[in-house]
């Protein structure tokens, strides 16, 4: 299978994204939140928290205690430690972004072809079942990752400038953040997209596919993110281990998606 073939659907999705203005707000909102959330916390959070003041809120107390125990940010001032914590934890957003975007796009991968009546012409080409799954996967995950990485670069750059202004030092992403951004996030996005593609083959309308992605696939991957994502932000090896684990799951999901995307299945089991 040539690289051209794999990138074909990706290019088409990108062209589609470029021309479909209705989905722009969704795509723009995610990176804006990715920038505004840590920025707001960096600028406001330390200012409203006085470590000398007695804390009634147990959640806040727990956070501060964990901050004291966290050896990775030991030795810094309270405000710097809090800022580093905020920057590190905000990396979770960039794990979530590709999952949401890829799952949403993958959920429509097959069902939209059915709605547009382009599925049968595609199936009538020499494209193999496996190539169809991989092309659809790249088409869904590629733009999502691209957008996430562009957003992360912009987001971390803004945060670095803000911390430079606020604290006099530019605080960037941690090693865990980078492992999450480059490995764990993409792996979970691939898993979510494969599950969504397999599901998409069973649906006949976009609404059902979207609902399934929103109510089943994204919540399940959120649990995965909660279990693996947070420790991965602190310890990079958790990120690598999680990536390996999720990749194993991806192999199973790929086989399932491939079964679902067999031509006779697609053409005879529309429901």
């Amino acid at each position: 299978m040539t690289r051209t073939l794999l990138l074909l659907f990706c290019r088409k999705e990108l062209r589609d994204l470029r021309t479909n203005r209705r989905i722009w707000p969704g795509y723009l909102m995610l990176p804006v939140i990715g920038v505004l959330l840590p920025l707001g916390l960096i600028l406001l959070f330390p200012a409203v928290m006085d470590p000398a003041r007695p804390i009634d809120d147990p959640g806040l107390r727990l956070l501060l205690e964990s901050l004291q125990r966290d050896h990775t940010i030991h030795g810094a001032t309270f405000v710097e430690r809090l800022t580093r914590l905020v920057v590190r934890e905000s990396g979770l957003w960039y794990l979530l972004m590709p999952v949401v975007l890829a799952a949403g796009s993958a959920a429509l991968a097959i069902v939209r072809e059915k709605e547009q009546r382009t599925l049968e012409p595609i199936l009538a080409t020499p494209l193999s079942d496996g190539a169809l799954v991989l092309s659809k996967l790249v088409g869904a995950v590629g733009p999502a990752l691209l957008w996430t990485w562009v957003s992360a670069i912009a987001g971390y750059a803004v945060v670095a400038v803000a911390t430079l202004i606020r604290l006099g030092i530019a605080i960037g992403p941690t090693a865990g953040n980078l492992v999450g951004l480059l490995f764990l996030g993409p792996a979970i996005a691939v898993a979510a997209a494969l599950a969504a593609i397999a599901a998409s083959a069973r649906f006949t309308d976009s609404q059902s596919a979207n609902l399934f992605a929103g109510l089943v696939i994204v919540p399940i991957t959120l649990i995965l993110l909660a279990v693996l994502g947070r420790p991965a932000m602190i310890w990079p090896w958790v990120g690598f281990g999680g990536t390996a684990l999720v990749s194993l799951g991806c192999a199973g999901l790929y086989r399932r998606a491939r079964r679902r995307l067999q031509r006779d299945e697609l053409l005879t089991r529309w429901r």
Partner: peptide, 20 residues
């Protein structure tokens, strides 16, 4: 797959992408 490379199909509905 090799058969599909040697055959062409015109379906009842054209089946193209509207935005392209």
């Amino acid at each position: 797959a090799s058969l599909r490379a040697r055959a062409g199909l015109l379906t009842e509905t054209p089946g193209f992408y509207d935005r392209l």
